[in-house]
Amino acid sequence: MSLLEVTDLKVSFNTSDGVVQAVRGVTFSIDRGQTLGIVGESGSGKSVSTQTLMGLTPGAKVGGQALFEGQDLLTMTPDQLRRIRGSQISMIFQDPLSSLHPLYKVGWQIVEMIKAHEPGVSKAAARKRAIELLGMVGIPQPDRRVDDFPHQFSGGMRQRAMIAMALALNPKLIIADEPTTALDATVQAQILDLMLRLQREFDTALIMITHDLGVIADLADDVLVMYAGKPVEHTDRRTLYYRPHHPYTAGLLRSIPSGSGGRNDRLVPIPGQPPSLISPPSGCSFHPRCAYTMDRCVVEEPPLRPVADRHRSACWLPDEAVGLSAEVENLRGMAVDQGRKEASA
């Protein structure tokens, strides 16, 4: 049994414009010590999925199952879920300035969390632990900085403080929701290093949510790519980077700045906009933006199916069309031609 097993998670919201189907069937699992990257554009449902697991999406209609150590998070009472939040599963959010309470001292906010789950711990002991944690995440002079307010910290230090808070009760799973998006590139690398080091040290499971495939390149064991509320590709990191199957994943990879490339090495954007989640496109949600659309894609939705061992993709292209090379592009093109012929025949 895995630490967390999410099966066919569905989340929708009633709005005045109609029902927003934010997540339309996501399945994944994660074990202790593992890192799962969830990648997608804004609005692909990656944050909503994980916040729903934690009961942080009020007003959502939720379906599916999410077994955490065998217990379904989605059917727990609010109080059961509250006990798990912070102590068993903790979260790190995108913007560390707005995520820390501006009117309370950083140390106080960590102590509060410790005391909420371990009421027996004395204030002095909790404070000592907060200082240790701040030191562990690389905040200089933690015994003095513990009494600083968040606005006295730099952006990177605030995120370090959030990480310290997330680790405070030695949780089994940490969900990091775009933890480096609001930070400078150099600070980003430091924070990612720190998270990786602490994850190994504590043998924690880590779900890393990002829109940037570059962020999880060194970090994730498995990667789940989401598009319009659905998983479109799910495999290990190496396969995803070198042998992507889904045209959307391939598009995301082409839009990463390589750094090594020369002056003429242009980024290739994915054309078009993410679709409406109130009335998603027919067939494959990606077909309006896809370069390999076949007739079948418009009417029939591709399931997330195995294309190789431990490699699943929701695309009608043939299994062997994996990778980014010119030959593979040819192969895809031929498949599309054939698909169109079959349809017209």
Binding site: R83, R85, S87, S90, M91, F93, S99, E112, M113, M162
Partner: peptide, 15 residues
Amino acid sequence: SEDYIRTARAKGLSE
């Protein structure tokens, strides 16, 4: 609707 209220909930504090 502030982020730090979401953090407070994520910390497992009582409502």
